[in-house]
Amino acid sequence: MSNRLTALQKVLLSFLLLAFIGPFLPLALASVSFRWGWPDLLPSIWWWEKREAARLPLAWDYVLDPVSRLLPALQNTVLIAALVTVIALVLSIPAARILARQKFRGKNAAELYFALPLIVPEIATGIGMFLIFLQFGVQGSLFTVVLAHLVPILPYMIRMLTSVYQELDGGMLDQADLLGASKMQRFRYVELPLILPGILAASLFSVLISTNVFLLTFYMGQGQVETLATLLFAKVSSGGALDPVAAAFTLIITLPGIFFLGLTARSLKDDVFAGGLDKG
């Protein structure tokens, strides 16, 4: 096998890269523009040309100014994503374990049942949950947002971890038993390290979904819980197309995902995985 790409493969790869980076280019340009109207290929007036003259902070100046409320929104986004992911993992790991390894009556029905939230539109779930929370008077808190985010995330999480568990060699666990490991030791030293790559991948999905969910955040948060998604939505719906601030927010909203992706990619590298985990 050759490690060189053929000319055709290079062209295809370039297209692929372009397709992934493509959407980011106009965003990056728009975020540093002052005026960018049709049919100009590039902004006609740049942000820095107007920076001194403007009375209000523009573009990135606005974004980084406390008035944009970026920092609290970013904090909320990260906190919610982290809470949702941890809770989803705690609920999904045992569920996936059973679904993958045990046979029981109604297993198919259970699997379908866990996938149901994916079929119901988010807006219906959102309104329904809102009405329930309203009755209990707990609407508009971080906690209700976290609960709401679990709705679209749990189905994915359970599904991904189930296939992770299906791949896991059961003989390895039997072996740990026979060698004298207790159930907790078996989980800590054998099972967890073996499913860790799957857990990281599922967590990545969870973080991505959580940072991007607008409707549920909006309903449950009651405007009291601001995340990057609600902040962005407010900007996009109030301003014209490709408002520099909205463009900047869009770029920032991708940061938690990219950060987590970088983190997991490092841990998933073979040598780190093989060498760094079990030092118990």
């Binding site: 039997d174 072996q175 740990a176 026979l178 060698l179 390290p193 073996l194 093989a274 079990d278 118990g280």
Partner: peptide
Amino acid sequence: MVFQNYGLFPHMTAEENITFGLRM
């Protein structure tokens, strides 16, 4: 018991595999 595919823990060195039972 030694399984047909040996069932070695892939994330442990030979030494860590061998001492697994003692460590537990």
